[in-house]
Amino acid sequence: MQLDAMRTVLDALPIAVAFVDADERVRIANRACAAILGPAPEGRTCSALLRHPEFLGGLEASLSGDKTHVKRLILTAGGNETHLTVTFTPMITTTVKGVLVAFEDLTPIEQAGVMRRDFVANVSHELRTPLTALVGFIETLRGAARDDPAARDRFLGIMEREAGRMIRLVSDLLSLSRVEAEERRRPANEVDIAVLLKTLLESHRETAASGGIDLRLEMAEGPVRLRADGDQLTQVFHNLVENAIKYGGGGKEVMIRVTELQHEPVLKGAAIQVEVIDRGEGIGPLHLPRLTERFYRVDTHRSREQGGTGLGLAIVKHIVNRHRGRLKIESEPGKGSKFIIILPKT
């Protein structure tokens, strides 16, 4: 194969591929190579582009023999790791002997594996804590507290609370699993979000009033219809209003504001914007990008004391994604928080 023909073929490939000659100099590098070897790698030696012992060893082995070699590399740059499988295949063109080097990026697969391991570890930790408490109290009730009615009542109350926490965790895990399974299927039903929000606020009004919190709904009169799954949207706003009451209720006001947008630039069409606003403590900027991660909590102890599972905002994010909408979070310490849901009307 001529080098010009090879260049045409390699440029059409979606993965990074380069042809290296016997002097270990890059003769051809397709466009995808720039992400690994840097810009304009052609004409430069491999040792100057990628000084990795496994890479250079695989290259030399293929140049000195006629066998294909495969190496695994981990490259670190800017605090991020890139995992690569590199295949070295000896090749002779009409004029040059060399090696075809193909880079397969395994980073997304590795990241998915890390996420699975972290998820299992987090679930195990969240379940182990209440289970350990339950076992300890059961042993105490069978022993020292067997004939102590006051201690028995106190321990049973704690056991009930811990069991409820496990039930909420399992319920949220099942909910998250269902939402993820349906995420690619967009809802087909029509929902009046005005009715949905009024009903939701009535269900929270007693809890809010017990904490001296005023729940307000600000929106135009009349129905506000959009294409949505009513049950899932109820879950979204239930989670957001409940969080606002628990963690932002210090400001003594939680407001839901509904606005109809004639044209939302990102969604490229008409949309409904729903803001859940509290006047509480606010959230620091370091926490904002991570709020929708599973089991991420700004204040772990306080969240557990309030009965939180750390999954509520992850569920919100996936439901909003299913509706092809947007979730924005704005907050400053001491100035409260604003959770903004933007949903397309059609």
Rank of each mutant, 00 (worst) to 15 (best):
A163V: 08
P14F: 13
L156K: 06
V266C: 06
F237T: 11
V123P: 07
R322K: 07
I319Y: 01
L343Q: 05
S337A: 13
A163G: 02
A163I: 07
A144C: 08
E218S: 03
P187I: 02
R161V: 04
E305I: 07
A48H: 11
P344G: 02
V298T: 15
D231W: 00
R227A: 10
I213P: 06
T94R: 13
L100M: 11
K198W: 09
L217C: 02
R31D: 08
V298P: 08
V26Q: 00
F237G: 10
R146Q: 08
P90H: 07
G282R: 13
L50Q: 09
A29Q: 01
E218Q: 09
E54Q: 12
L174F: 04
V135D: 11
R257W: 02
A209R: 15
H238N: 14
A40I: 01
L196A: 11
R44I: 00
Q2E: 14
I329E: 01
A188M: 10
A181K: 06
G325S: 02
P265L: 09
E139F: 05
V236G: 06
P223S: 14
E264R: 14
G250N: 07
E126H: 14
R7D: 15
S337F: 03
V258G: 06
E126Y: 14
V236I: 11
F119D: 07
I92V: 11
L106H: 12
D278Y: 05
V114N: 13
H69R: 13
E104T: 12
G98I: 01
T199C: 07
Q306R: 05
R324G: 03
L37I: 10
G230W: 00
G65V: 03
E281W: 01
V101N: 06
I213Q: 00
R31Y: 08
E275T: 06
F19C: 12
E281V: 12
G280P: 13
S331C: 00
K317Q: 14
V114Y: 15
K97W: 11
S124V: 01
L134N: 09
L327N: 10
L327F: 15
E221P: 01
L173H: 01
I319A: 01
D105F: 00
T234K: 13
A32N: 09
